[in-house]
Design a protein around this nucleic acid. Structure first.
Length: 293
DNA sequence: GCCGGAATAT
DNA sequence: CATATTCCGG
């Protein structure tokens, strides 16, 4: 399904720089839809809408090479401009991208199973727009995954390796892409590395969040864009994000018919993860809020 | 009432 | 199948 035609980006380019949409990143990150829904797209309205639901998640591209972008469904050529009232505001489905998941895992890892509860995780992740529900749901699945793995690979410890021991089918998908800390698999077991010295959960402040998140993630290759998979039908209106940061792409697409290299990504997410667990290089526990991946 | 966790729904 | 939403204890 990643077979994007080349049409999309043509269109994309055209619709891309929407002045109005681009600008209002002044302070409140409000999604286009939200704004529309609130009918507050008129510069005349001095009124500042409450910043409740915003969903600027960080969904970096898989690789620096492959340029992919959000599939923002415009008005379908019809009314790009808002029209869909859709009073019923709904957040777009959260797309647990490998990166996001990694943050999740990191958070859980550094929290310890005990403290790894949705709220805490959510806070630690510092991903704005992330809700407790999101995390809870994901956590649920994650636990399931862990459980599964425990039973299957006992000593194998699919953790470190990218490919989990037992040769897990696609079942792991996303999960397999993140290094699972061993301690997870067996709570009361080998404690080769059960160190959780700090976990200053006390830092549960919710003060500098979006900024922190942005900063943390925005360190590396932050491509603030998330794409909503073409699931038309479900969502009355396409939800886009707004470029709350410079969305500069590499502009590497030379698909003018020069298939030099660049094997089109098979599809889906790439399972690229560099294991820093090098031979002699001792892997430093990845700090939690690192946008490293 | 809030929160966490599983169950259920989309 | 992946998330979301609902339901049920604490």
């Amino acid at each position: 399904m990643r077979e994007d035609d080349s049409t999309w980006f043509s269109k994309w380019e055209e619709e891309l720089p929407s002045p109005e949409e681009l600008m209002p990143l002044s302070q409140t990150l409000i999604t286009h839809d939200l704004a529309v829904a609130f009918d507050i797209r008129n510069p005349n309205s001095p009124q500042q809408p409450p910043p409740p639901p915003l969903l600027p998640l960080q969904t970096p591209s898989s690789q620096p090479n492959s340029a992919e972008f959000d599939s923002a469904e415009l008005g379908g050529g019809g009314g790009a401009t808002g029209d869909e009232p859709a009073r019923t505001l709904k957040r777009p489905r959260l797309v647990w991208t490998p990166q996001l998941h990694k943050r999740f895992v990191d958070a859980v890892a550094h929290l310890g199973i005990k403290n790894a509860v949705p709220k805490t995780i959510m806070q630690l992740m510092s991903v704005d727009g992330l809700t407790r529900e999101n995390v809870a749901s994901h956590l649920q699945k994650y636990r399931l995954y862990l459980k599964r793995m425990q039973g299957l690979s006992s000593g194998g410890g699919g953790a470190g390796g990218g490919l989990t021991g037992g040769g897990d089918p696609a079942t792991d998908h996303l999960f397999a892409s993140s290094p699972v800390p061993a301690h997870f698999l067996h709570p009361g077991r080998a404690n080769s590395d059960n160190f959780l010295p700090f976990v200053p959960v006390a830092a549960l402040q919710q003060h500098h969040h979006q900024m922190a998140a942005a900063a943390a993630v925005g360190h590396q290759q932050l491509q603030t864009q998330y794409r909503q998979i073409g699931h038309f039908g479900s969502q009355p209106n396409g939800q886009f994000e707004h470029p709350f940061l410079s969305r500069q792409s590499q502009t590497v697409h030379h698909r003018i018919g020069a298939p030099v290299n660049n094997p089109v990504v098979p599809s889906s997410y790439v399972e690229d993860m560099e294991s820093a667990t090098a031979a002699n290089g001792r892997k430093v526990l990845t700090l939690f809020p690192t946008g490293d991946d």
